[in-house]
Design a protein around this nucleic acid. Structure first.
Lengths: 230, 230
DNA sequence: TAAGACATTTGCGCCGGCGCAATGATTCCA
DNA sequence: TGGAATCATTGCGCCGGCGCAAATGTCTTA
């Protein structure tokens, strides 16, 4: 079938030999999503796991009260829901395509035996989850100890690192991000984020727009993020 | 040698047959710690991973500015640093014994081949990390969206669930927890925690003491945690 | 191209929880 | 047993950031 080519950057399958790679590729299926479409639904039984081929997904959690929290964004080569397939309580969050995207999909009933046959996959998954765990811990720490402006600076820099694209004015975050999204990433309100970005814009640090951010002065943002100023 | 008995409740080794269990046990070494002693030092090269036999550890992270954040407590049967041994940046946090404790220890150079030989171990690790990841996500969400009183209620209930002991006055949290610890778990200040617990004490919900909390009315706390009141 | 949906900006007022500081209670150890 | 160290309590004042509200800007669809 088409599209079963596994990108060489996929951390989940690093170190596998050609034979294993082939077995893995044979058991995958391709799925395409258009912008806004949901790949994973919070609470649903965790039936499958994924690798992103193209595009980008927003991973978020909804609280019982209806507040949303954005956990992270996942791009090409990265895995989705690989730990969730072991969960008894269903997918812990929602994954929505923020751009037209394509993923490879493995059913849980297929991936578990694959991991048993090729333990390297399980070790790779463990390594990736481990580093995501560390990243989440760091953000937890941030949220617990740091002020809003700094958290917003960090969130913007993180986005730029993940999906920054050089343009003539600076570095563009190359997918639609709203002020609301940043608010949900940082535990702030839409209003505070908007005010903060406006202030930065008038200082020439960034250039804003509808679901667009261009960083004109990355170093200035880093200074805020690392509290080197004032 | 002594003490190489692996507790049957250890999730990391669930589903292993007797032979595998024996190999795993043979490669472990026992270590005892007294209250206050550090098992794992943040930033140090992740040399080994652990399973707790007895006692309890506080896992915390220190910020560059010196603020501490308590991530969770780990008790008997639970694993420590199993994902960290794959990390290139060293242990992400500190683990301190809050009681006299004993752990089994495996060197990274031993555990990785064990996982390759017995993939079940890696799958178990993945499952556990996955559920811890979910728990951390939930706490992140909490921190981002909920008020302090509620977060404190949840933290206290979590401690009670992990280490609650029935006594005649109610449920005692069976290891030393200071107000400062709870503050560092919830992203609040010592002062706010103290005030909140005092208020609860005067409402008869709990009974406080130096590094001691007894929950007299768990249901009342749940009401606060789930915002069923008012 | 007009209308509606969605995103952003900005002003204003308020308050939860922090920061500081001083005091009081327990526990540990010589 | 006394003294130091650690932990807990409480009062007071302030302010960062939220909540509400209204206006303005920008994209989409028919």
């Amino acid at each position: 079938m088409d599209g079963r080519q596994i990108p060489p950057t996929a951390q989940l399958f690093l170190g596998l030999d050609a034979v294993a790679m082939d077995v893995v590729a044979q058991s995958a299926s391709l799925r395409r999503l258009t912008r806004g479409e949901e790949l994973i639904d919070q609470g649903e039984e965790a039936r499958a796991c994924f690798i992103v081929l193209e595009g980008r997904f927003k991973v978020a959690q909804l609280t019982p009260e209806g507040h949303q929290v954005v956990l992270h964004y996942v791009g090409p080569g990265e895995m989705l829901a690989v730990a969730a397939i072991f969960s008894k309580t269903g997918y812990p969050g929602t994954a929505t395509a923020v751009q037209d995207s394509a993923v490879l999909e493995w059913d849980r009933k297929v991936m578990t035996p694959l991991m048993e046959r090729f333990p390297r996959i399980a070790l790779n998954a463990l390594e990736t989850i481990g580093s995501r765990f560390q990243a989440l811990q760091a953000r937890y720490r941030e949220l617990a100890t740091e002020r809003v402006e700094r958290r917003i600076a960090r969130a913007v820099l993180r986005l730029a690192r993940q999906a920054g694209k050089r343009v003539k004015e600076g570095v563009l975050i190359d997918f639609p991000v709203s002020r609301q999204d940043i608010a949900e990433m940082t535990g702030a309100t839409l209003h505070t984020v908007s005010r903060t970005l406006s202030a930065w814009e008038s200082e020439g640090l960034i250039e804003g727009g509808r679901q667009r951010i261009i960083i004109r002065n990355p170093h200035g943002l880093v200074q805020i993020a690392e509290e080197l100023h004032d």
